[in-house]
Write a protein that binds this DNA or RNA. Structure first.
Lengths: 203, 203
DNA sequence: CGCTTTCTATACCGGTCAGTACGGAAGGAA
DNA sequence: TTCCTTCCGTACTGACCGGTATAGAAAGCG
């Protein structure tokens, strides 16, 4: 990994901001999905022309991967932090409240880019789908590891298995994202989170 | 609603089976989504040509709605039955186990057509998306009604609200559908269901 | 048989898709 | 200033999209 800040560019310097353009692309992918976002949508939102996009990002698929990186780095940061909470209940609470906060924030698309991009789609997006599913599986594995540690620490009741609980919480978060994408109100999602926490096992 | 079995058709009779073709179309929509299913995919799976499809079903959107009707009538029948269970816990158990059975059945696509069709998509599918979301809202309302009845009957603990619980269960079911669509194993989904039931409030 | 009606098949329509060739413009280096 | 590299904008490509015009084939009815 070299530094991407070329200190002395040879020719004419780029006229647009790479990060800003990528952020704009993320918003489009986020609200329309990979296939639903056409190059015309993307270039218009990014404020650049088609050849500029290809020169800067490669192609649509590479652009999506970079946008997905940005999404996970900025919008899913709360997930990594949540795993460091002291108890399994606190982990769940941070994840649920973090998802609530992210998915109901104004001036951002609803739903979760990972969920949107992991549902069925045309053949062209199959590799995208596979990658998103793989990335999600890795997050899920981290959650599972955390709950197995909790189990070993006596932080979970005897009748609850770590594997089941991790998948359960993952399903809850994904379901929340689907409902947010379908237009659920913030109040609805808040009571959903509160109910989930009320039912969470352990103190 | 007239009987669709025309007793004496005037001209040349249709050479394919309407129901069979619709079932084939459902499988394609189910596995690829509305936009991901091209007319070529559909006609090939249905074993008919393009003009036959248009003559029999109208257009792609009308075909999808008929396929969605079929889906709800045949694959989501367990939902209506589940609401008749005597207790709220039994309702949840029937819904969760019914979803598990449906989504892990061999020789059928994974995931839920309603979830697939309600996530973000291109502009052309916006009306489809709106209708699927509306149909889902009606099912959700039925579930809410059932849980409010349960609350009135003292079938739910005092600290649990009907609205929150209905949205909670809905999110769980949708999340399960997402995981099934992403390739979760039957064992995983089974432990997810068992965990959910272990955490369900009330006896 | 001839006639009408409805089916099926081929071939096509305009529009949009992702991706690109090409020429001109703009900045840095010599 | 001259050159060279890189970027930008227009205009295009072939492929595919959903949808349809048109013509031929097949069945019932007289």
């Amino acid at each position: 990994m070299k530094t991407d800040n070329r200190p002395a560019a040879k020719g004419r310097p780029r006229e647009f901001c790479l990060d800003g353009a990528l952020a704009a692309a993320l918003r489009i992918f986020w609200s329309k999905g990979y296939e639903g976002a056409s190059l015309s949508d993307l270039t218009q939102a990014m404020g650049i022309t088609r050849p500029s996009l290809y020169a800067a990002f490669g192609n649509k698929e590479a652009l999506f991967r970079k946008a997905l990186d940005l999404y996970e780095r900025e919008k899913l940061a709360y997930m990594g932090e949540a795993l460091e909470a002291p108890t399994s209940r606190a982990v769940a609470e941070r994840l649920l409240r973090g998802a609530l906060e992210m998915q109901t924030s104004e001036c951002e698309p609803r739903g979760c880019l990972r969920v949107i991009s992991s549902v069925a789609c045309g053949a062209e997006a199959e590799s995208i789908r596979a990658e998103v599913i793989a990335r999600r599986a890795s997050s899920q594995q981290a959650l599972l590891d955390r709950f197995e540690r909790a189990k070993a620490e006596g932080d979970l009741p005897a009748h609850v298995e770590a594997a089941g609980l991790a998948d359960y919480l993952g399903a809850l978060l994904q379901g929340m994202a689907v409902q947010a994408g379908a237009g659920a109100s913030r109040e609805q999602l808040e009571t959903l989170v509160e109910t989930s926490l009320a039912l969470w096992p352990g103190k």
